[in-house]
Amino acid sequence: MLKYIVRRLILTVPILLGLSILVFLFVRALPGGPAIALLGERATQESVEQIEEELGLDRPLPVQYLSYLRNILSGDLGSSVSTRRPIVDELKQRFPATFELAAMAMLFAVAAGIPLGYVAAKRYQGVLDNVSLVASLIGISFPVFFLALLMKYVFAVKLGWLPTVGRIDVTRSLEHPTGFYLLDAIIAGDGEAFVDVLEHLIMPAIALGTIPLAIVARITRAAVLDVLGEDYVRTAKAKGLDPSVVDRRHVLRNAMLPVVTVIGLQTGLLLTGAVLTETVFSFPGLGSWILNAIRFRDYAVIQGGILFFAGMFIVVNLLVDISYAFLNPRIRYR
């Protein structure tokens, strides 16, 4: 098991390397360099050259790449060209925001999707099954940003139940030792702040979690249906095992394998959806940050941000693979 994890970790190195080259080249190929972005379209040739020299952009590409790689390895992702803030600082601030959002969205998707899919399978072809099928179809077909806009309009603008933008009420003072606002509120023992942060999370998380919810429900339904027809389930029932025990120990546990795979894959898509959700709710996370960086051709932010995004995706997939072993002892990693 440990050997497997180590091997998987080693395998991610070439992927990350390839990715860094890809992102590096992409950023250099963007029309108009960062100097132009910084100085404006009418900058003089000299001032452009001066800035490029300052940023080291006048050196040959392989040299630039190697020094970039060296910096990454020493934990230095450079500074934002526009705000001059170190990327690492910005990541520390924005990663917790997106993480909190994605985690809540996934929690929502899993907490609602698995029971929904399970019940639908147990009531196969019943009313509930059909309702859940239609609902999940609608969930998959709705663009994230449309759902986000609708929710914002209904629950924030019309009903005034929930706040429209940001992570926390701007007038509230809360220390941020961790950057995870929910955690910060718990550390500060501030119940009101906790509720405030939660209220800011509800809509973005539901908007972001709806597609994964629909997919988790569908996969759970299919997997449970599959397992219910297995011999070992019939055997377990035949030997008089309590039906709830059969469901828990035999059906659900075996049906979880494909579900976990899908959860892992969806987490990657969640990061994509975060770009849209964060835009609609002005949520200060990674998605809106990278989007702005691309708009303003902020080289360092694009490089650092995309690498970080992809790194997260790779880690999530690794975790998914490892969790297989716990769920299914039949899988033995060599």
Binding site: I15, L22, V275, R295, I306, F309
Partner: peptide, 23 residues
């Protein structure tokens, strides 16, 4: 491996990048 690499970038982000690049 190249396909894995492409899959590790969220698709919308990649589309945004390509559009910025290509026009």
């Amino acid at each position: 491996r190249v396909m894995d690499l492409l899959l590790s970038v969220p698709s919308l982000l990649m589309a945004i990048g390509l559009v910025t690049l290509l026009g």
